[in-house]
Write a protein that binds this DNA or RNA. Structure first.
Lengths: 216, 216
DNA sequence: TCTATTTAATCAATCGCTTGATTAATTTTG
DNA sequence: CAAAATTAATCAAGCGATTGATTAAATAGA
């Protein structure tokens, strides 16, 4: 049946997503992926053309949800800029829990920029999100909510970077925080609200604060 | 000659460090490393035992400079806690320029936590740095300089994460910032001072600021 | 409707290649 | 000469990819 076919491809993508993010592109062999998915090795090439094709397929499946996450938020006229930032932080913290496996793989692949076209494609997609946040921040500056001399690009780097660091260096951050962030329960109940509260307050004091010009 | 031997090993380590950080552990083959270093492949095993031994050797060579970077700073009684934070940010921004190649590899390896013992070793080393920063922040709280309810661990994640994000996703951040951060000149003249100024102000407003307790 | 034909899905087997590592022979050094 | 350093050649293992055969499903022809 058609439904079964789609399910099977989706199942492969699910497994591939997990294995890729656990072992990286190189570390994840097609044998491992097909083995864990319970399908013949040749099926990967049959469905996705190549190993890289499979990787791209995993990536593409996520793009849609990536795309429109911010769209509505940015164009919502009923919220203040700061409300939007808060809302974005909440959406982002949510992804920490749900998509961290995939995002880990994504930034791994981007970090070692082999297969340059793919890394470019990834960053091109992410730039759309960046642009949306950028727009929100710019609006906040324009309407006087935010300090006019904030470094918008660095703020974005902080939001993404803080989360990525915690997720991508789990041994270190688990040791730092005193609990295992690879444990889903602890991730949801402790880390997620903590990141959320922290980022809100950190950015609130930076964006809204009126800075004095006296440098020590 | 003894000097030549040491030079040769050091040359291999230089090349290995670069190739590892460009291609990752898996992507960097021993043939590539030995080829670019201009030595026979077997020399890597002759000198370092194995590929992983070579990686550890590259890592160990850096440890010493890692270790004592913060040591003096933390135990300096003549500085305020905030002065120490500023100084640390400056030291850290300096490393952005000088060691980003190595640090990239380091976080790559930690991210995909295969070869668990190695990743554990890396994070164990880094925890020493984390502890030093933690101590500085705690001192600041204790003497009333910093707000008592700051999230110290998250602050650390922000410092490391912001920089790592910029360095590890160069395509994305170059596109964001409008100039190529892989260009050493631009990295030194534009990115480094920018990160420095940004982190100082970001953390200053967070650490020193007195927050009101009204949540919208 | 029943059969014939085409298409899609799946498989085991294997191809050529690269990997990290090792060997044994050779060269250099002291 | 003996020890250390270096080399070319080779190893088994694992890789991604492809093959040709087999099965299941869909379609067409009577």
């Amino acid at each position: 049946m058609d439904k079964d076919k789609i399910d099977k491809k989706d199942h492969i993508l699910d497994v591939a997503e997990r294995v890729f993010s656990e072992l990286g592109f190189d570390g994840a062999s097609t044998r491992t992926i097909s083995g864990e998915a319970g399908v013949n090795m040749a099926m990967l090439n049959y469905y996705f053309g190549s190993k890289e094709g499979l990787f791209v397929a995993v990536f593409n499946r996520k793009i849609v949800s990536f795309q429109n996450l911010l769209q509505n938020l940015g164009s919502d006229g009923s919220m203040t800029a700061w409300d939007k930032v808060e809302k974005y932080i909440e959406m982002y913290a949510e992804r920490v829990v749900n998509n961290n496996c995939f995002q880990k793989m994504l930034y791994q692949e981007m970090a070692m920029q082999r297969r340059g076209d793919l890394a470019d494609k990834i960053s091109e997609i992410l730039m759309k999100n960046v642009s949306e946040v950028h727009k929100i921040l710019q609006d906040g500056i324009d309407n006087g909510e935010f300090s006019k001399d904030i470094d918008m690009e660095m703020v974005i780097a902080t939001i993404y970077g803080t989360k990525n660091f915690i997720i991508n260096a789990p041994q270190l951050t688990s040791s730092m925080l005193g609990y295992d962030i690879q444990n889903d329960k602890l991730l949801e109940e402790r880390l997620k609200p903590r990141i959320e509260a922290y980022l809100k307050r950190l950015l609130k004091s930076y964006l809204l604060n009126k800075h004095d010009n006296t440098d020590k």
